[in-house]
Design a protein around this nucleic acid. Structure first.
Length: 157
DNA sequence: GCCAACGTTGGC
DNA sequence: GCCAACGTTGGC
């Protein structure tokens, strides 16, 4: 099957692209997703090797800060069973887990492409993350959008 | 801190 | 199944 492409939001205060690059094997488990639509993307559509635009949100300069890749199949999110975790879900059981995550491996940090720059790019006006009121932490990216953005990154660093 | 937008919850 | 209330996200 062909590669899919995704945009994944992370608050840099929690986990920045540099944090992922500094992690063992430059890989982190993408835990804590508690939205069904975002979960379903991981569970049903993501494959190892898919391309990821690493987006920094809820920060001074929101935008795409790096390139990453999906590094595992989906598996149960361990934080849902951890009573001490802010992501603990008492309604979920190991026999019937509600939440899953994939692993994400950072490929490289890039020059920041700001939200304003994304909005100003005519080829990107249809990007899901730019839609009004969008709150999804994981959104699909088309091959054309991926090409537009990564080409720009190759050109500008 | 504000607030628009949207998801979830729970009473009915 | 409806829908109001509430909570969360996330840019500004």
């Amino acid at each position: 099957m062909a590669k899919n492409y995704w945009l994944m939001k992370s608050e840099p205060d929690e986990c920045s692209i540099d944090d992922v690059l500094a992690a063992p094997r430059q890989t982190v488990p993408w835990t804590g997703v508690r939205n069904y639509q975002a979960r379903n993307f991981m569970r049903d559509a993501m494959k190892p090797g898919d391309g990821v635009l690493f987006y920094h949100s809820s920060c001074a300069e929101p935008g795409i800060a790096g390139i990453a890749t999906v590094a595992s199949r989906p598996y149960p999110d361990a934080t849902q069973f951890d009573r001490d975790s802010e992501y603990y879900d008492p309604a979920s059981t190991p026999e019937n887990p509600r939440w899953v995550n994939v692993d994400v491996r950072a490929v490289r940090r890039t020059q920041l492409i700001t939200l304003a720059q994304l909005r100003a790019t005519p080829q990107l006006t249809e990007m899901a993350v730019l839609r009004r009121g969008n709150r999804l932490s994981i959104t699909p990216v088309t091959a054309g959008q991926w090409r537009c953005i990564t080409t720009r990154l190759v050109r500008d660093g």
